[in-house]
């Protein structure tokens, strides 16, 4: 299976084929509904967001809390289409990759292609399995959102399928 190192570049994305199964290794950000809404509201009101999105890959997930001594709890993907209203603004700000589950809207699909970005799906409901592929976890921003805070995860050989590029 093809191994991809993160952060992504447009050159790496060019080598990917839709439907291809890959293993991702490197840093990703986490963000789901509440964090997306806050990021995009801030960007649209010309505010400064607490993390840089440029060249990043966002994993749509809200993990369970880590048990003491563990890196993270269960950590599978959440449904991506709920982030569709916010993805265009993030793509315009340099977002290159997204990991989630399920279909995207027509608009987001075309924008991913136009911006030379990529959308991966991974296995929903396999949060225990996927948590074993996570080697680092720190909260970067929006701590008040709890499970919806923005985390920096380091993933290793994380299984994903190229869905839109």
């Amino acid at each position: 299976m093809k191994k991809i190192n993160l952060p992504l570049t447009r050159d790496i994305i060019k080598t990917l084929k839709v439907g291809e199964e890959v293993l991702l290794t490197g840093p990703v950000l986490t963000a789901r509904d509440a964090a997306h809404k806050r990021l995009v509201n801030t960007l649209e009101s010309k505010g400064k967001i607490p993390v840089s999105i440029k060249g990043e890959t966002i994993y749509y997930t809200g993990p369970t809390p880590a048990r003491p001594g563990e890196i993270i709890g269960s950590c599978g993907p959440t449904t991506s289409f709920r982030m569709d209203p916010f993805s265009l603004v993030l793509l315009k700000n340099g977002l290159l990759g997204m990991i989630g589950k399920g279909e995207r809207s027509y608009e987001v699909t075309s924008m991913i292609k136009r911006f030379g970005a990529v959308y991966f799906v991974t296995i929903g409901g396999a949060g225990a399995y996927l948590s074993q592929k996570i080697k680092g976890n720190t909260v970067l921003a929006y701590k008040d959102l709890g499970t919806e805070a923005i985390h920096r995860l380091i993933i290793e050989d994380f299984p994903a399928i190229v869905s839109i590029k």
Partner: peptide
């Protein structure tokens, strides 16, 4: 992977899915 997930969850006392 889904079947393996169920086995890991039980063994490590981890939730099957993060959406509990």
């Amino acid at each position: 992977i889904i079947i393996q997930n169920a086995l890991i969850a039980k063994e490590k006392r981890l939730p099957i899915c993060q959406d509990t």
